[in-house]
């Protein structure tokens, strides 16, 4: 009940942000919402299935490049089509990658995903004709719900229609993921994370469940990746680089992978904190590295851990 209220307040605050916050801060909300979609998916794999991928930038990059390619080369501007194409392509690429990766766990899984991520990064960098190489590709302004908004000034477009479009996508993605993790499938993933050998005795096909979780997370990453494109208007290979995969794992740890909305909170804090620290000192990576160490040692449940840890005590008192 209290959780529902917090979610409603959070959604309300995001919806109201363009009315009250400065344009600058509202623009920062756009990558936040895109990353939130990515992280909802990543956490199905990380938090629920217990598999840490260091290669999900592959799918972010895939989604972003799908949008850039469709808007520049194929003259398709509809964001609905772009998101569906990103999701479909994400799933298509994820099927063989997942089939190979989910045979392994722990560090072997992580390294294999990293390897696939770097293969894709190299592909993006070298296939100049298709991807624009290190210069990247422009992501032309997509039309929303069939409305071409090319006449609008860019900032108005981003803080207005595009902002609410992103919010709607995030809302749908969150709703979908909520249904997934609270379905029998989600419970099966939890049992697998807990003890794969014992999960099998209940008739749960461990590899198959991990495979599905991987593919779903890849679809989310591709959709989130496609949403990252329009605010900058350009996609480049750094989106697919392994440090980007590391960033999203960091966001998940920061917010807390043990809670459903933890990664979303992590994305929010990461983006605003990074923006602030970068403006104060040039060594933001140094500071973020120290933060990561502190989180892992002192607060393994992330920021949401401070909220949820107190809950049992409160419940006990009432």
């Amino acid at each position: 009940m209290k959780g529902g209220l917090a979610v409603a307040l959070g959604a309300g605050a995001i919806a109201a942000a363009p009315l009250v916050a400065s344009t600058y801060h509202v623009l920062l909300m756009l990558p936040f919402m895109a990353y939130a979609v990515v992280l909802l998916g990543l956490n199905l794999l990380f938090g629920y299935a217990g598999l840490v991928s260091f290669g999900h930038a592959l799918f972010i990059g895939l989604g972003a490049y799908t949008g850039a390619f469709l808007t520049t080369h194929a003259k398709i501007r509809s964001l609905e089509v772009i998101l569906l194409a990103a999701a479909a392509l994400g799933a298509l690429v994820a099927v063989p990658v997942a089939a190979l990766c989910v045979r392994y766990v722990k560090i072997y899984f992580g390294m294999l995903t990293l390897a696939f991520g770097m293969v894709f990064y190299t592909f993006v960098l070298k296939f100049y004709r298709l991807t624009g190489g290190d210069e990247g590709l422009p992501f032309l302004r997509p039309s929303l719900l069939g409305q071409s908004l090319d006449a609008m000034p860019k900032t108005d477009y981003l803080v207005g229609p595009y902002y609410y479009y992103s919010l709607a996508v995030l809302g749908l993605a969150a709703l979908g993921m909520w249904r997934i993790v609270h379905s029998p499938f989600g419970l099966c993933l939890k049992t697998i994370r807990d003890n794969p050998a014992k999960a099998e005795t209940l008739g749960i096909g461990v590899t198959r469940h991990r495979f599905y979780a991987f593919v779903i997370s890849a679809v989310y990453a591709a959709v989130g990746g496609a949403l990252l494109g329009p605010p900058t208007g350009n996609v480049d290979p750094t989106l697919a680089y392994w440090t980007h995969s590391g960033n999203i794992v960091f966001m998940t740890l920061l917010g807390g992978f043990t809670s459903f909305f933890g990664p979303v909170v992590g994305a929010f804090v990461f983006i605003y904190l990074q923006n602030w620290v970068m403006s104060v000192v040039p060594y933001w990576r140094l500071i973020f590295g120290a933060m990561l160490a502190v989180i892992v040692i002192l607060a393994p449940d992330g920021l949401m851990g401070f909220v949820t840890r107190r809950r049992p005590a409160l419940a006990g008192r009432t």
């Binding site: 029998p184 419970l187 939890k190 807990d194 003890n195 749960i204």
Partner: peptide, 22 residues
């Protein structure tokens, strides 16, 4: 199994129900 193999993140009800889905 000898060590029970209870899934600690699941409630008692969920531990029982999961077998009906699988």
């Amino acid at each position: 199994p000898e060590d029970c193999g209870i899934f600690s993140d699941l409630t008692v009800a969920e531990n029982i129900e999961i077998a009906t889905w699988t």
